[in-house]
């Protein structure tokens, strides 16, 4: 069933008051928000696991006020996009290719890629595939390499156990752990989140089969060269981003406990010596929930200094 933002109820639509658009990408139905002047330089806001475009609702406001075109897709498998049940639909390659398809379909150029969490590996893969269209890039609480990995992701308790065979589909699928407790524990102001935005993440992943990507995506994180299923893509990705010379910016959540700034943000600056930042904001992994507007101001300031030309 095709649902729009308005279909999620007035409480959510009030927080994310935009029109729903849909595109066919590689045969899947992708939901996206597309606001601002069609010829303005476009900003592509890319979310990760288990969020959807809603995550960027406060971040996009300053960008729109400054006159940019803001495009916010829901990755296939999340939000109001189609939720394929075929496991092979959810390879890193396929998700990156879905973003490439959207960029082509909307005929975007002079594009500012903004990547959070899995929006990093997917968005940066898309960027490398359409390098000539990229005008700038911002990364936050994400990565694009095999090493260093997070200590958290290599620990048996809780991460590896949570994603073990049979355990992953139970805890994240059947019990809905990711849009629930995992997100709750990964913001700074938990009460505000619990009483406000949390329902928007749970409502779009209401049924166990809808939540497949919440436990399948983490299995692509490279932690063991013998069993990694996306290791080659991450190696390609790191080589590609190292060669990028476009304006770039690093923003990070001060309270992040998984993709810690000392390891991950620092590695971005090693890869991109020219990058601005690190701009530290209040926030755990889902930093937009605590500092959405501030992140929007940082992105707007960056865009004003670095984006040139029109969007089409």
């Amino acid at each position: 069933m095709t649902r729009t933002i308005a279909d999620l109820g007035p409480d959510i639509h009030r927080m994310y008051p935009y029109a729903s658009n849909f595109a066919n990408v590689n045969g899947w139905r992708m939901h996206y928000v597309d606001e601002g002047p069609v010829d303005a330089p476009p900003v592509l806001l890319l979310h990760g696991n288990p969020t959807w475009g809603f995550l960027w609702r406060e971040t996009m406001v300053p960008l729109l006020e400054a006159g940019y075109r803001v495009i916010v897709p829901d990755q296939i498998g999340f939000g109001l996009s189609e939720h394929p049940h075929a496991a092979s639909a959810h390879s890193l390659d396929n998700h990156a290719a879905n973003l490439v398809a959207l960029i082509d379909l909307l005929e975007l150029k002079n594009l500012f890629f903004v990547c959070h969490d899995w929006g990093g590996p997917t968005g940066l893969s898309a960027l490398l595939t359409r390098k000539e269209l990229a005008a700038g890039v911002a990364v936050m609480n994400t990565w694009a390499w095999r090493e260093p990995s997070s200590d958290f992701h290599a620990q048996v308790m809780p991460w590896l156990t949570m994603h073990a065979p049979i355990v992953g589909p139970y805890t994240m699928g059947r019990q809905g752990g990711f849009p629930g407790r995992v997100m709750y524990l990964s913001v700074v102001d938990r009460e505000k989140f619990k009483n406000g935005a949390m329902k928007a993440y749970q409502r779009v992943l209401a049924d166990p089969d809808d939540r497949r990507l919440t436990w399948q995506w983490p299995r692509s994180i490279p932690i063991n060269p013998e069993t990694d299923i996306a290791g080659d893509r991450f190696a390609w990705l790191e080589e590609g981003v190292r060669a990028l010379e476009i304006p770039s910016c690093v923003i990070w959540g001060r309270e992040e406990v998984v993709f810690t700034a000392d390891v991950f943000a620092s590695h971005w600056h090693e890869i991109w010596p020219h990058a601005e930042g690190t701009h530290m904001v209040s926030g755990n992994h889902f930093l937009q929930e605590d500092s959405g507007r501030e992140i929007g101001d940082l992105l707007t300031d960056f865009a004003k200094r670095n984006l040139r030309g029109t969007g089409r």
Binding site: V156, T161, P165, I166, T171, Q175, G177, G180, R181
Partner: peptide, 27 residues
Amino acid sequence: IMEWLVDGVGGRWTIEALTTMGKIYRV
């Protein structure tokens, strides 16, 4: 069944870790 599985697999996989993880994330 998950307890039976992790116990049977053994090694670094334990019922204790499964239980603790379950409580942390309320799953």
